[in-house]
Simulated assay, not measured.
Amino acid sequence: MLTWANAQSDEAYDKIENQKVAYVTKHLNLTPSEAQRFFPLYNQYNKSMRSVKSAKSNMLSNQSDRRNNDMIEFDAKEVDLKKLYRSKFAEVIGSARASEFFMVEQEFKDMLYRELQSRKNR
């Protein structure tokens, strides 16, 4: 049963990621060539960011870790990752669109959240 639940979760995650790729591609007006070079970097960024967020979540759920860790350190790691990848993205899509990526990413998350809330309220 756990394997089935994980498979369902992985499928849902993959579906959302595919929608996100399409959304980012459209809103940043990525050419096929740019997309081919951008998304491997995005995947690295996403993996690194998930790792930081997971560590932050684990810290929040462990009482002794909560006393020994500083939330601001996790926030700083997230900002540092964004700065690092903004410069990497800029090499592929230029500075303006590299900065815009983070706004587009947040818009997608907001849209997804609204959609989930809408489904809940039906």
Results as ranks from 00 to 15, higher is better:
H27Q: 03
D75N: 15
E115R: 10
S64G: 06
V21R: 06
A22Q: 08
L84P: 05
E100Q: 13
R86F: 10
M103E: 09
A35H: 06
N62K: 13
Q63F: 13
N43I: 01
T31Y: 05
E91K: 10
F108A: 00
N62S: 13
I93K: 13
K120M: 15
S48G: 03
K53P: 00
V52T: 06
M59G: 08
K120L: 14
V52N: 06
Q8T: 03
N46K: 06
N68K: 15
F38E: 02
M103T: 10
N29Q: 10
Y45D: 07
I93A: 10
A7Y: 11
K56N: 07
S57K: 13
S118R: 11
N46A: 05
M103R: 12
S48C: 04
F89P: 07
R66S: 10
R67W: 14
Q19E: 09
M1E: 12
L41S: 00
M71W: 11
E105R: 13
A22P: 00
S95W: 14
I93M: 12
K47D: 02
E107A: 09
D70N: 15
P40V: 04
K83T: 13
R122Q: 13
A35W: 05
D14C: 00
N29F: 02
M49Q: 08
F102H: 05
A12K: 09
K83N: 14
S54D: 08
E17A: 00
R50L: 10
L112R: 00
S99Y: 09
I72Y: 14
D110F: 05
E34P: 03
S118V: 06
K120Y: 14
A96E: 15
S118W: 05
E73M: 08
F39R: 00
L41R: 01
K15Q: 07
M59R: 10
S9W: 08
E91M: 08
N6P: 01
L112E: 01
F74I: 10
L84E: 15
K53H: 05
M111P: 02
Q117P: 02
R50F: 02
S54A: 08
I16M: 09
S87H: 09
F108G: 00
E100C: 01
E11F: 05
N58E: 14
K15E: 03
D14T: 00
K82W: 13
D80H: 15
E115H: 04
L84Q: 14
E105H: 12
M111S: 04
A5Q: 06
V104G: 07
L60E: 12
Y85M: 11
K15N: 07
K26C: 01
D70K: 15
R67S: 15
E34Y: 04
S87N: 13
K53M: 14
R97S: 09
E105S: 09
V92Q: 07
K88L: 14
A90Q: 09
S51L: 10
Q8N: 03
N121F: 11
L60G: 09
T3M: 15
P32S: 04
S57C: 07
L81S: 06
N43W: 05
Y113C: 03
Q8Y: 05
T3P: 03
D80R: 15
S99F: 08
A35R: 02
Q106S: 11
F38W: 02
K26E: 13
